[in-house]
Design a protein around this nucleic acid. Structure first.
Lengths: 204, 204
DNA sequence: GTAAAAAATGAACATCGTTCAAAAAATTTC
DNA sequence: GAAATTTTTTGAACGATGTTCATTTTTTAC
C-alpha cells in the first residue's frame, strides 16, 4: 500500500511541525535549530529533509498554521461585533493585538521570517495572508462608498499595515514603539481617528 | 603618544563601519559576513574584535549612521513644508517613504536587526531613535490641543508606527503590503485620513 | 639598539544547515 | 518463507559562520 507510507510520512511531518512550533514558542524564531527540532520530534537529523525541503519550509508550515488560527479568531471577532463599521474595525484591531500578545513568538515569526536571497515564498502561502485584508475590506467599504474597488483594496492593505505597524513596534519593544501597557488604548485611538477621518472625507 | 594609537584605532573602526555599510547595501543585513567585512576593510578577521565587541555592534554602528542621516533629512523636509500641521505631517511621511526607498537595505537593517536573546540595545543607540518621534510631535500637538503631554507622546509614537508599518510591509514585498507603485499615494491618503480624523475628534 | 608592551594576525574551535553513503526496513519475487 | 530488490532512515561528514587566543609583528620606552 502506498497510502500507508504516505500516512507515515504525513505523521512524521506533523510531528516535525509540532516540534518546530514548540521550539519557536520556547526560543523564538531565531532560536529554531534543526537538531533541536528533530530531537524533539524523535527522528534523525536527516529525516527533516525527507519531509520538507529545508528548515525555512518548516517555518512556513508553522506560519501557515498560525495564519489559519489568526484568520479564525479575526473572523469570530467581527461576527461578535456591532453592526457599524466603526465597531467592526475596532473589534478587528483589538483582536489582532490580543492575538499578537497571546502568541507573541508565533505571530512574530509570521513577519520576521526571511527566505534566502533569490528564493521566494510559495504562492499557496502568500494566498493564506489574504484573510488579513479580507476581514477588513467590507467594513472599510461602508465607510468609503466613494472609492472604487481597486482603491478600496489598496486602502484596506494600508489600514491593516498601519495597525500592524503599531502592534509590531510595540511588541518588539523598540524605542519608537508604544509601551505594551498603552498598546490597546492606542490601537483604539488610531482606529477611532482613521474611521472619523474616513467619514469626514466622504462627507466633504 | 597614546593619541596616535587612538587615532589609528578610530581610523580602523571607521574603515570597518564603511565596509559593513557597503556590504549591507550590496547584500542586505542577512548577507553581512565578518570575513567579507574585514577583507573589504583590509584587515585581519580578528581585528574586528579589537575595535568592536562583535558583529552585532558593528551593525549598530551602521544603524547609528543611518539614523543620523534619516533624522537630518526628516528635519529638512519639515522646515521646507507649509505651516499647517497637515502639510508638515504629509511632508514628513512622504520623506520617510522616500528615504526608505532610496536606502532600502540600510533602512531595513534599522528594523530587522536583532540582538541575541538576553542582550539588549545600548541606551545611547535607543536614544538615537528619538528623532523619529520628535519631528512629528509638535505638528500633532497643533492638531490635538485637547491632549495632555503624556497622551501626545503616546499618540506620536502610534502615528509614526502606523506610517512605518505601511512603508515596511510595502518594501518587504509581503502579500499584505501595498504595491510599491501605490505606496506614496497610500501614505498620503493615510495621513490625510488621520489628520482629518484628529481635527474631527477635537471639534466634536 | 635592545627590551618590554601593545596590537595585529589567522589558524583553530564550536555551532549551524545540509548532504549523502551506508545501514535498516519494507516490499517484491520466486 | 527466503532471497533479492527497492525504499526509507540514519548520523557522520562537509562547508560556512562568528568568535577566540596563542603566536607574530609592530610600537614604545629607556
Amino acid at each position: 500500500m502506498s497510502t500507508a507510507r504516505e500516512a507515515k510520512k504525513a505523521e512524521l511531518k506533523k510531528r516535525l511541525i509540532d516540534a518546530a512550533e514548540a521550539e519557536i514558542i520556547e526560543h523564538g524564531l531565531a532560536g529554531l535549530k534543526a537538531r533541536a527540532v528533530t530531537a524533539r520530534a524523535g527522528c534523525a537529523l536527516g529525516s527533516l529533509y525527507t519531509v520538507v525541503e529545508d528548515l525555512d519550509m518548516l517555518v512556513i508550515e508553522v506560519n501557515s498554521r498560525t495564519l489559519t488560527e489568526l484568520g479564525e479568531t479575526l473572523t469570530e471577532a467581527v461576527t461578535q461585533a456591532g453592526d457599524t463599521p466603526q465597531h467592526a474595525l475596532q473589534a478587528l484591531a483589538l483582536r489582532y493585538a490580543d492575538f499578537a500578545i497571546a502568541h507573541q513568538p508565533l505571530w512574530l515569526s509570521l513577519f520576521e521570517h526571511r527566505l534566502p536571497e533569490g528564493q521566494d515564498i510559495p504562492e499557496w502561502h502568500k494566498q493564506e495572508h489574504a484573510v488579513l485584508v479580507e476581514v477588513i475590506a467590507p467594513h472599510l467599504a461602508k465607510l468609503r462608498p466613494d472609492m472604487t474597488h481597486e482603491a478600496l483594496i489598496l486602502r484596506t492593505r494600508t489600514t491593516f499595515a498601519a495597525v500592524h505597524g503599531v502592534v509590531y513596534l510595540a511588541l518588539q519593544g523598540r524605542f519608537v514603539g508604544v509601551p505594551m501597557e498603552a498598546l490597546k488604548s492606542e490601537i483604539s485611538g488610531l482606529v477611532e481617528t482613521m474611521t472619523a477621518g474616513a467619514a469626514q472625507i466622504v462627507q466633504a
